[in-house]
Amino acid sequence: MRLIKLVRNDVMKQKSGFLWLFILVIPLGTTAAMFLDMYIRYDYLFTMAQKRGLTSWEMLVNENHTMLQWGIFLPIFVAIISAMVHQVEFDRNSWKSLLSLPVTRTSVFISKFITIVLFSSILIVLNAIGLVVVGKVIGFPEPLSIEHYGSYIIHQFVGIFGVAALHNWMSSIFKNQAIPVVIGFIGVIFSSIILYQSFEIAKFSLYLYPFFAGGLQGFDSSVSIYGGIVCGAIITIIGNIEFTRRDIL
């Protein structure tokens, strides 16, 4: 499969790059923060959780997702990953030599999307593993619910499709990768303002699908699945039409 080769190449291009450091350091930070949170406030938080009928593990996900704002910031991390995946092609204008090889533009475009999702997934999985480690170290009384954590990971994984698609397209356009990252940042800020105004409007913002993946009370987490798939597909299709017709100068 040529697509697999392209993805392998895209991953190779990040060898000894900043991207690997990024996706390792971020989860390390979240794990440390969650550990401190649980270490200092566990008794208080657990009492509160019990009143709402939550287990320690569920409470930990909630803390990670809303107190630490992981669900809000994840799209920005995806935007940064996308910027780094595309930066290598702009550095030495490698687009022209890459696209002069016998590859279709579509496969190049899709490969970049898959690479962004791949690196983002590593980030998501490492964050979740960090939570499990925190729970085990603190010594939660309940057994770990693999199902709950698996669903948390999958909802985030699908929830980022929309952001990954949008940023894959934007990053392929701008030579200066700061632009799409700033757009992503603004998108996230605006979306979180809307979030506290109206869920009905908020569910149309692709920057919020990773947030809805948290399975929080009052938010329908299936929105992250539908939204991620629909936005991911539509934006990738439209972006690809533009990308295949673009003049590479």
Binding site: D91, R92, N93
Partner: peptide
Amino acid sequence: VGSMVEYPSYYGHL
């Protein structure tokens, strides 16, 4: 077809 358009493109850290 083999090609090189203007200055060569490469991935510097590789």
